[in-house]
Amino acid sequence: MGLEEVKQKKKRKKRGRFVFRVSIIGALLGAVVFTLVSNIQADNTIYRAGDQAPDFKLQQINESNERESVQLSDLEGKGVMLNFWGTWCKPCEREMPYMQELYGKYKDKGIEIVAVSLDSTELVVDRFVDRHNLTFPVPHDTTEEVRDLYKVGPLPSTFFINPEGEIVEYVEGALTLESLEGHLQNILPEA
């Protein structure tokens, strides 16, 4: 074995070792980064801005609204404000007048407000709707299926869905008149 040959062999060995170490460290780094990123994301809801809003169909119980049921896919082409609420929830109650006010303003511009009620008794919702003179559709999610579908945590929670059926924004907590209007502007169909 000549000196050259030994040198060559050693060089090959060194390179092999380098490649081995790089791949192991690379794999470990990948796993660590994946874990940390997943851990941060684990706190969020499943549906985020950019996702397609999943379809659902529910009985509509607001007597001031002509719809008998609401199916999300039927509303394609309109911007949809999908709100989850309950009569017992004070912040939900506070944002209702704003929704009603803007419903009148944006209804004819191609925006639908869908306020999914999570109450278990219809009567309570009826009284609430009457008290606040609401006219937008109020689908009734008695089995909390749709709530489960959208992984809604605390109330109120609102999804803003554009005419293509894509979630543009997700808001947890109550909205003010101004912020609500801003969100609605974002999902306005182009004239």
Binding site: G86, K90, R127
Partner: peptide
């Protein structure tokens, strides 16, 4: 006529009857 129904009755901060939960 059932005027109002409060499933989990309490008086809120303004002294108005309200329901604490849905249950």
């Amino acid at each position: 006529e059932l005027g109002e129904y409060y499933p989990d009755y309490y008086l809120d901060d303004n002294g108005i009857p309200a329901s604490r939960t849905d249950y």
